[in-house]
Amino acid sequence: MSASGHGSGSGSTWGGGMSLAASGVAASPRTATPVLACHHLTRRFGDRVAVDDVSLEVRPSETYGLLGPNGAGKTTTIRMVCGLLTSDAGDVTVAGRPIGGRTRDGRALIGYVPQDIALYPDLSARENLRFFGRLYGLGGRALDARVDAVLEVVDLRDRAEDRVDSFSGGMQRRLNIGAGLVHEPLLLVLDEPTVGVDPQSRHAILESVRNLGRTGTAVLYTTHYMEEAERLCDRVGIIDHGRMVAEGTHRELVDLVSERDRVELETTGDVERFARACTTLPDVESASASGGLVHVLTGQGRRVLPRLFELAEANQAVVRSARVVEPDLEAVFLHLTGSALRE
């Protein structure tokens, strides 16, 4: 499986949005059934259950977001998806082929991009892509065509002959994703691909991932950034403490909180005590503290604000600013788990 990871940001852009199909490389056959099907995945590490009965499917041309905080079980889940970690229970198939055990047929259909960079720094961009392509049995003109196509996709054709150790962190990130695409997988698995990159590189990565759907590629995308899931993903699965707590389109998930508002209070002082006190109000469904913010979920956002200010003063806290936010994925997460999405 092709590997890639994260690095420090760069100011380089990743444009073009060119697909492998558009560049003259024939697309792989697609099926009407889900490309990825995971059923009841479970994984324990000693007494700790890292992944607890997780099921999900990803369809052709779909970007599926696995959203959750650090430590929620996202990476463990995708490592089982890619056959890098054995599950204690459950099964995974890609295009109907089982993942795991001794068979490698299904794994060849996956492009895996983990969090850690896995490139050869003393090789050029082209040499790295050729290496990963040869791992999948590509050669000759087919390999040359795919390497050229991927260099266009990741906007690195003008740096194709340069050594990777001369690249910025953002450029290395883009090349890593290219390494996951060189064999034109049916399923591309991206584990937190924008961690550690600058905003410009993040924007470019998200735009290019969005364009992959036009080639028919199915994408499994893990993130703990709400805005990435909202912007990029056709469907989102929310995972917390190893369990899938909700799944659906953005609209379907937001509908779970109905007309509830999320109130964000920038607070100093005893923030934790203030958050606990907020839960005593009859109109407040949940409240949690994250850094200097107190997140309150309520059906009466503006109406409850004066009482929240009074509670802050009574609980040795000072509210510096407050805003009422219409329902979004942050509100969904708060509603389902009782806490804000933690880093």
Rank of each mutant, 00 (worst) to 15 (best):
G137W: 04
Q172F: 06
E152S: 15
V304P: 07
D52Q: 11
H250G: 00
V92D: 08
H6A: 13
Y112L: 10
V51N: 07
T63D: 04
I205S: 03
A50F: 04
G170Q: 07
S208L: 15
T86Q: 14
T86V: 08
H241S: 12
F45W: 08
G83R: 06
P282I: 02
K74E: 10
M226F: 10
V51T: 03
R307D: 09
E285A: 15
R44T: 07
L175T: 04
G73S: 06
L175Q: 08
C278W: 09
T75Y: 06
L41T: 04
E264M: 08
I177P: 06
V92I: 15
A312I: 05
D88M: 08
T77S: 11
E266M: 11
A125K: 10
S23C: 12
H295E: 15
G73W: 05
R342Q: 14
V219I: 09
R30N: 05
E207T: 14
C278Y: 12
E57Q: 15
D53F: 08
A21W: 01
S23W: 09
T279K: 15
R43D: 09
T194E: 10
Q316L: 03
P60T: 09
H224G: 03
V257Q: 09
A145M: 05
T194I: 12
F274D: 14
F132L: 02
L311G: 04
L281W: 05
S28Q: 14
L190Y: 09
Y225K: 04
G242W: 06
R102E: 15
L308A: 12
G5F: 13
E326G: 11
D122M: 10
G169L: 07
F45P: 00
Q200F: 01
L156H: 04
A314S: 12
I205N: 04
A275W: 11
G15T: 10
V324H: 14
L265C: 04
M226S: 10
E326K: 13
S168N: 05
G242H: 11
A314L: 09
G83F: 01
G96M: 06
